[in-house]
Write a protein that binds this DNA or RNA. Structure first.
Lengths: 218, 218
DNA sequence: TTATAAACAGACCGGTTGTCCTGTTTTGTC
DNA sequence: GACAAAACAGGACAACCGGTCTGTTTATAA
């Protein structure tokens, strides 16, 4: 006797499951190398259901970008930086946290935002602008935090933010290609060794000494 | 009367033409989004000829990486840095030359090495190691130049090189996504603003002139 | 000239891709 | 319960992909 098969509609849950699998596959294999058939199988979803929530592959990718990638940047970068005592300290915390996490899991998948940005920016303008917006928010959060640190301005906040995001993105790119997170720490230290360390009372002399001696320590 | 059709075997020329088209398409559309059919049509090459020189698509991509991408890094980065009076000056020259070139042509395709690195590093280990080698040579050239500048050491050469390559890679990533080369200059200035900036007196004007003429030649 | 291999031409094929389409079931509303 | 809309199932399909195969032409060397 055949089992009575019952179905429970769970549109939000199904949408979430599809998004989970798509995000994971896009990051691991890329957009073009991820087939909808693979995603359907991995998510346990039929073609009809997938098509109901995401009419096209592009729509699915756009949802991944706007919901998952943006959230990833927010959670691993924006929130920690805002919660840190200063922008510079926040940057340090994030770099080291990411490096530690990568070394823990033993492989490097790269930055979610950069991964998709490289493959999709030139392919479609909707992709491009969605990804550009995330980059802009990322930089602005760091620049705003830096402005809050010292309202009368030390280094230029926009330049600093651009450099930080660029250094991180590029370091992750190298780490992914070499499958070695060490370059992340090298970049962080390179970033720190240059700090002008603005007016902070008696800490200044100490820091300067550290910078000079660091060269000999190597 | 049908024209007498003559054929001239030109294996090197045909190989070069295929490589040209493949490199261009891989950069503009990516590896997976480039079909061999498109490449054949664009290069005016038949399937038999293509298969004769490159048995598989992977072999073609590997040749593009090792011959074209590596050459691009050498020509736009390694050679100019080695020719510059110092590593820092070389970095400045390259950043500004690339920014100027991008603004001249009106769009940003991104860094050839990073473009392929993101799409192919996780896909295949041969791709990955070939790309990693180019990254390593790039960094080492900068580090070596820096060591030659002041043998008794200033900042740590490896850290500095890693930071420079990362900042450039990430800046190009953002520039590509935003389709705006401005962030390249922002990162360069961010990089420079941290420099201890050793005595530069009246040499500055002279250096700047050399930089400008190089950009026109390049 | 002749043999021999490299260089090239072009058709062919199995498998995959993204999308569309027609039904069926569940859910919400009156 | 009636009814409409949403949620889901699953097959069909045309286009395309990368690789292979057979055959022909050109260059090379004996």
């Amino acid at each position: 006797m055949a089992m009575r098969k019952k179905r429970t509609n769970d549109p939000e849950g199904m949408r979430r499951r599809v998004l989970d699998v798509a995000d994971d596959s896009f990051q691991a294999r890329g957009y073009h190398a991820s087939s909808l058939g693979d995603l359907m199988a991995a998510a346990g979803v039929t073609g009809g259901a997938l098509h109901h929530h995401f009419p096209t592959k592009k729509a699915l990718a756009l949802a991944v970008i706007e919901e998952r990638v943006a959230a990833a940047v927010r959670e691993t970068w924006i929130d920690p930086v805002l919660a840190a005592p200063s922008a510079r300290e926040g940057v340090r915390v994030v770099f080291e946290a990411v490096a530690a996490e990568l070394e823990r899991q033993g492989y490097v998948r790269g930055c979610p935002l950069n991964n998709l940005a490289h493959e999709l920016s030139l392919a479609d303008d909707e992709f491009r602008s969605a990804l550009a917006r995330i980059f802009a928010n990322w930089r602005q959060a760091i620049a705003d935090k830096m402005r809050a640190d010292q309202p009368d301005g030390g280094a230029d906040p926009e330049r600093f933010a651009a450099l930080v995001v660029a250094a991180y993105s590029g370091a992750m790119s190298m780490a992914k290609t070499a499958q070695d997170a060490g370059v992340l720490r090298a970049c962080l230290r390179g970033l720190e060794s240059f700090e002008p360390s603005p007016s902070q009372g008696r800490l200044t002399a100490k820091r300067r000494r550290r910078v000079l001696s660091r060269a000999k320590i190597g």
